[in-house]
Simulated assay, not measured.
Amino acid sequence: MAAKKEKVIKWGVVTAGRITHTFARDIKHCVNTEIAAVASRDDEKARRFQLEHSVETTYDNYQALFNDENVDAVYIGSPHTFHFEHAVAAMRAGKHILCEKPITTSESKLLELMSVATEEKVFLMEAMWTWFLPAIKKARDWYRSGKIGELIHLKCDFGYHVPYCESGREYDPKLAGGCLFDMGIYPIAFNRLFNASAPKEMQGNIHRAPNGVDDDVIWQLKYENSISSLHTSFRARLPNSGHLIGTEGTICIPDFFRSIECSLMRDDKIEERFQDNRKGSGFEFQIDHACKRIRQGETQSDVVTWKDSLNFLKDIETIRQKAISS
């Protein structure tokens, strides 16, 4: 008897910006899934996207894409403050959702998204692609198997110089601008991957741009037996690395957010090194995962769970409340 053919998941893409282009390039490295449609309020951008990625259909409004019966799932790459309304509208139209980070700008809105996903019986996941990267998974395997002994210190930073422009998306408070939402979620998620429990103490400093939006945030979290030092910035290009320092060794992850490799160090020597030799940018791993869960009829991921997404938002709010502004 022939094996049952796997369902091809057809995606609709919201906006035709930089991050959705990455999604479109990387989906080509996945099997039994494709982009069926793109929606953008800028018709010229939609047409360019269509031509570059061989997409069948374009729309100049998002609801038309959500109503497209040929679309199974929607990838949301719009600015942070639009994630909630786009996700709700798409789920009400019966679409599964992979939504860019942060999935919403508040816990209450995420709880509502979770309720809608449950009611509509559709899949909903925050696109924390870093957690699916083979190098990150290898680093977590080393950590869990005790290769570095007891964790003493986690260090992680992520930042790029983004010139100040009050009307730009990154600095616009109406679009939830600021480095904490835009880039800080990466160190937050990295730390949560290795420190699932809440810290005993938190302290930090927030530097603000002329319009009051955070443009550099550094914070430290104290746990029972370890410390996490985290940093994010629009003011400078940071090393963008992750380090797990233990009593018996150190795990080093260059460019942790998009990592292709990691090393296990003892003293000054590399004991083990891992490289993934992937073909895409790295989005392909989360796309494959989302498609698998959709085919299984699941409403959430078992890797980036709804609880994980809630914890990311809780951490952001804690930093905002407790860090000192300068």
Rank of each mutant, 00 (worst) to 15 (best):
Ile316Tyr: 07
Ala39Arg: 06
Asp68Gly: 08
Gly242Lys: 02
Ala90Glu: 08
Asp302Ser: 10
Glu56Arg: 14
Val55Cys: 05
Trp219Gln: 04
Val88Trp: 08
Arg295Asn: 14
Leu264Phe: 07
Gly168Thr: 13
Glu6His: 05
Leu151Asp: 02
Ser229Asn: 10
Val116Ala: 06
Phe274Cys: 00
Ser54Lys: 15
Ala127Val: 03
Arg235Gly: 07
Ile316Val: 08
Cys30Trp: 03
Trp129Asn: 03
Asp157Tyr: 00
Val55Pro: 01
Glu272Pro: 00
Trp129Gly: 04
Ile218Tyr: 03
Phe132His: 09
Val38Leu: 02
Leu113His: 03
Val213Lys: 04
Tyr75Leu: 11
Glu317Thr: 10
Phe285Arg: 03
Gln203Pro: 03
Gly12Glu: 02
His161Gly: 05
Asp43Lys: 14
Thr118Pro: 02
Trp129Lys: 06
Gly168Cys: 15
Lys137Cys: 05
Glu317Asn: 10
Leu313Glu: 04
Ala189Thr: 06
Tyr160Cys: 01
Gly168Ala: 12
Glu126Leu: 11
Glu150Cys: 05
Leu110Lys: 05
Lys155Ile: 15
His53Arg: 04
Leu154Glu: 09
Asp72Gln: 05
Ser228Trp: 07
Lys5Met: 14
Asp255Trp: 14
Val88Glu: 05
Lys200Gly: 05
Ala139Val: 11
Gly297Thr: 09
Asp60Glu: 14
Trp129Arg: 03
Gly178His: 01
Ser145Glu: 15
Gln50Arg: 11
Lys10Gly: 02
Asp141Ile: 13
Lys147Ile: 14
Lys279Glu: 06
Thr20Met: 08
Ile270Phe: 06
Leu110Thr: 01
Ala46Phe: 10
Cys252Phe: 10
Ser301Thr: 11
Asp182Lys: 05
Leu230Asp: 10
Glu150Val: 15
Asn277Lys: 07
His289Asn: 04
Lys7Trp: 01
Gly12Trp: 02
Glu248His: 09
Arg18Trp: 09
Cys179Ala: 00
Arg295Thr: 04
Lys109Ser: 09
Thr247Phe: 09
Arg169His: 10
Cys165Glu: 15
Phe257Gln: 01
Val55Tyr: 03
Ala198Phe: 10
Lys269Ser: 10
Val31Glu: 08
Ala209Gln: 03
Glu52Gln: 15
Val116Pro: 05
Asn277Gln: 11
Ala290Cys: 13
Thr33Pro: 01
Asp141Asn: 11
Met114Gln: 14
Leu230Phe: 01
His80Glu: 00
Phe84Tyr: 13
Met265Ile: 15
Thr318His: 07
Met202Ser: 13
Thr130Met: 14
Ile227Glu: 12
Pro173Arg: 07
Val31Ser: 12
Ile185Met: 07
Ala24Ser: 12
Arg278Ser: 01
His80Ser: 10
Thr232Ala: 06
Gly184Ala: 00
Gly178Phe: 00
Lys279Tyr: 01
Glu56Asp: 10
Asp308Cys: 13
Glu224Ala: 12
Lys200Ala: 09
Lys292Ala: 11
Leu113Arg: 02
Gln286Lys: 03
Gly297Cys: 06
Lys10Leu: 01
Asp308Trp: 13
Phe181Arg: 00
Met265Lys: 08
Ser241Cys: 09
Leu264Gly: 00
Cys262Pro: 02
Gln286Val: 11
Leu151Asn: 07
His80Val: 08
Lys292Arg: 12
Ala196Phe: 08
Pro102Trp: 05
Leu310Phe: 09
Asp255His: 12
